[in-house]
Design a protein around this nucleic acid. Structure first.
Lengths: 246, 246
DNA sequence: TACGTTTATTGAACACGTTCAAGTCAGCTC
DNA sequence: GAGCTGACTTGAACGTGTTCAATAAACGTA
């Protein structure tokens, strides 16, 4: 029918729905959040979500391709929250260390409500064939938004990285962010204190490395690393342009 | 019975089984491998595995806690294969870059048969609460074996890292290995060529960084990083020593 | 051998995610 | 209004992983 095309991730689309349809969809999503929060992802069943939303079981599948796609709805929301929060940060902060740290901290803060079922989400997202994987084609829009954010972190800062490095850094910083999130998912410390500790330490480290990149001693290393990255991306395009689309 | 000491991960143990029990267990494992290979992890059902093994459905669950634990059986095997393969490498190779690269390559080579369902395994392993997670207490034996391996890679090499760094490096290299495996899981290129490319590039990079660690310019950076790591581990012990055992 | 205990085995039953053919409803054209 | 079309809704049915109470087999002990 409608579906696909448009909409950041391709399946949480609201386009092509009746007004009534949108309402139903929202009710289901709301019920899902409520139950996920109340008893965790695994113990919230589709039947219960449907019942709570006042619709039939099959109807939930009319709006969401699977149970996992229900999570994606919230994930997209938290992503928007993060982008919003970063606008203020990037406007007022100039120091690279602080920009980086605060952007990462904001990510954790805005993701906090989902921490308890982040494990369940990740369980699916980790599967390379899942559309929820951060590396999947379906996540490409979200991914490029995130790398653009990292580009802004660099651009408005007091550091001027060498051109060749600057071209690749946003992607690298996004990867760094993914690593932090991986840590956060496993973090069971109260208030995720350890994740914040990690951010405090590593953001400084990363910023320092970027500043050092111009240093002659490190230049060959940087150069070689960048060459490798470009290699990989060329290879990537070659592979994805061929028939093997998924 | 036999089996190397106490079974790496603690739940695929053969200990406490009758001779007949071991045979049954082996038959189930064999049938599972066959069907996983033939039609992939998802399409191989427990009923079919049981039938192929000539046992009842319930019986399979007597020997394996879940379908995923069936995979773990093979993974443990590949771990032993890797350790074996590394013995030769570490005996004949002295150059750090080569030692590191070859050990990593051996890991990929020995894991190759499991690549197609590595995604499925990882789906569970990614969940922090799963015993299959590489960070879980249950995996501790395997983990420490792997870090010991990394210590050997360093010890027998032509590089002498500063003491404070040398103390932490094995763990860091293990983490690096985990990263490579994460990449491998997502690698869909023929023969996992991209993973080998990654290893070739990054192993050189990592080795170069270790060599550079003595340099005065990087010394403060190294120092600060190590301090951070020690902080984290102290914090870790503090948290795990308390009541929160899982 | 007889008995009790542990180990091994069974298959029915359960709960869940997912599918689907069949229905209902809303808006449109004639 | 009658009829058509397509969005929406339903719940039974399917296939799956997993559990469990019951049974059988093996083993030790008197």
């Amino acid at each position: 029918m409608n579906l696909e095309s448009a909409s950041p991730t391709g399946f949480e689309a609201t386009s092509g729905l009746t007004q009534k349809g949108e309402q139903t969809r929202a009710r289901i999503l709301e019920a899902a959040l409520f139950l996920f929060m109340e008893r965790g992802y695994d113990r919230a069943t589709m039947r219960e979500i449907a019942r709570q939303a006042g619709v039939s079981l099959g109807n939930a599948y009319y709006y969401f391709r699977s149970k996992e796609h229900l999570i994606q709805g919230y994930y997209a929301q938290s992503h928007q929250d993060h982008l919003q929060a970063c606008r203020d940060i990037l406007e007022h902060e100039k120091n690279l260390e602080d920009r980086l740290r605060k952007v990462l901290e904001a990510k954790i803060v805005t993701s906090e409500p989902y921490h308890q079922f982040a494990g369940a989400l990740f369980k699916t997202a980790a599967d390379p064939s899942s559309p929820l994987s951060p590396f999947s084609p379906e996540s490409q829009p979200t991914r490029s938004q995130a790398t653009q954010l990292m580009a802004q972190v660099l651009d408005g800062s007091d550091v001027n990285a060498p051109d060749d490095l600057a071209a690749e850094l946003p992607k690298l910083l996004w990867l760094y962010l993914m690593g932090v999130i991986l840590f956060w998912i496993h973090d069971r410390s109260p208030g995720c204190a350890r994740t914040f500790l990690l951010i405090e330490h590593t953001s400084r480290l990363v910023a320092k490395l970027i500043r050092l990149a111009r240093n002659p001693l490190l230049r060959p290393l940087t150069h070689r690393t960048l060459e490798m990255l470009r290699d990989f991306q060329a290879d990537d395009r070659r592979l994805t342009d061929s028939q093997d689309s998924l």
